[in-house]
Design a binder for these strands. Structure first.
Lengths: 248, 248
DNA sequence: CTAGAGGTTGACGTTGCGTCAAGGTCAAGC
DNA sequence: GCTTGACCTTGACGCAACGTCAACCTCTAG
């Protein structure tokens, strides 16, 4: 069985340009090339491509992937090395966050700005009453327990994930990106996963998820967090699209 | 008061290439340009440069810095925006760390490997953390690229050279040869050349080289490699002598 | 036969400079 | 006046991993 470049691009969820690039750098030459110059790939190539994409998604650089595929480097060893690099990256980013935060704090008006734009909306105990009212005291207790067990690092990651999502949504909204845009929906997918994590792993039903969207619009604290009423409505709309297509 | 490009490069701790680049992109045009085409800068330019470098160190992109300096964007607001971006970065890195860790754990032997933390004193990735911590992730990336480009043969030669040097030093230490002995110093000269090669040809300064010696003593992995704490101290002492006489 | 979908090979853009290359300028010593 | 060496200039490539035209050929269905 042979496939054209577009075929495997679709099968593997990448683009033909990427495949051409991989051919150029010798990472994935096509199985055969027609007299017309067309690239054709077989199952073996597809398998190889899938390994490449998996490693790429883990963040490995293409030359490192090439080594692993060539058998020069052991998979596990390459990943452990990569893990070290990632940890260094995290440390670097965290150091920068610390210095930027310090700098902002030292500037007049900076503290104010920071507080307005990001810090509130984040003490999870603020939501205690709403959670209990909507989903019961038991639900809150469970969520609270889960939160404490996360540990400082897990909590930071959880907050950071939310910051990333809402930041991305705010940018999309500002850019006028439609709510059903693929990237926006990818952010919503992350948001859904984030909410589910906050629910202790229980997947929210479409109804519950939509209710959350309504709350974002209705509650000024949430609305503000998503960049005002407009932003919150935008997020709700994106959540609606997601629920309709993914949670039906 | 006017300074040449090299002068302010030194005064501000950057390079003339960077200054030319800032001129090219209009971020920092020189105060005046001589009939010979030379760039000259005054105190105002120096001040502006220092603000640029401060913001750059906080991680802001050059166009963002340009906006701040042009007064188009408020400093605090730009930093808050940058903080958002940094948090997204952290979230991204944390997600990758999570998936890489999971992947390693699912592989046979992976867990083991991770636990061992790569004790083999000769996988060059062992040096990764030290390199990144002391000289930055970029320095490591460069070194890593160089390493891969060496090819299997070059890598073997590199390892062999190190083995020869450390073997020779261990023997000298065991024999009670003083650290300032000529043969020992010849070995250190080879060691220095070896380090420089690992640096992609950049000659380490006396300070950097001495820091490396300290690291050998402080880090048990290195110490072990040089035959325990005593051996590492011996090597450091020999490096000190070398630095004093050759790198002064 | 024609339209439209899909294929090809360039080649530029992205980020912030490092690193040659080829060649002019300037101050100092002979 | 000449040489030397330090310093200056303007290009231009390199890096990571493709996205995005551009210009042009090929295949397939109606």
């Amino acid at each position: 069985m042979q496939w054209s470049i577009q075929d495997i691009a679709r099968l593997s969820g990448t683009t033909s340009r990427t495949l051409r690039h991989y051919d150029d750098i010798g990472l994935l030459p096509p199985t055969s090339i027609g007299t017309n110059g067309y690239r054709y790939y077989d199952e073996a190539a597809l398998t190889r491509l899938q390994r490449i994409l998996m490693l790429r998604d883990l963040g490995l650089a293409l030359p490192a992937i090439a080594e692993v595929l060539a058998g020069q480097t052991d998979d596990a060893r390459a990943l452990v090395a990569h893990l070290h690099w990632l940890e260094q990256e995290r440390a670097r980013v965290e150091r920068q966050i610390a210095s930027v935060t310090t700098t902002i704090r030292k500037m007049e008006g900076g503290e104010q700005l920071m507080a307005e734009e990001m810090l509130d909306g984040f003490d999870h105990t603020v939501y205690k009453d709403e959670v209990e009212e909507r989903w019961g005291a038991e639900a809150y207790a469970k969520s609270d327990r889960w939160w404490r067990e996360l540990g400082a690092e897990g909590q930071a990651a959880f907050k950071a994930e939310e910051a990333a999502i809402s930041g991305g949504l705010a940018a999309a909204h500002a850019a006028g990106t439609p709510a059903d845009n693929a990237e926006v929906q990818a952010l919503i997918a992350r948001h859904y996963a984030w909410v589910r994590a906050g629910w202790g792993g229980t997947a929210p039903s479409a109804e519950a998820y939509l209710g959350l969207g309504d709350m974002y619009v209705a509650d000024p604290r949430f609305a503000k967090h998503y960049g005002g009423p407009d932003g919150a409505e935008y997020v709700r709309e994106a959540m609606r699209v997601y629920a309709a297509s993914e949670l039906a």
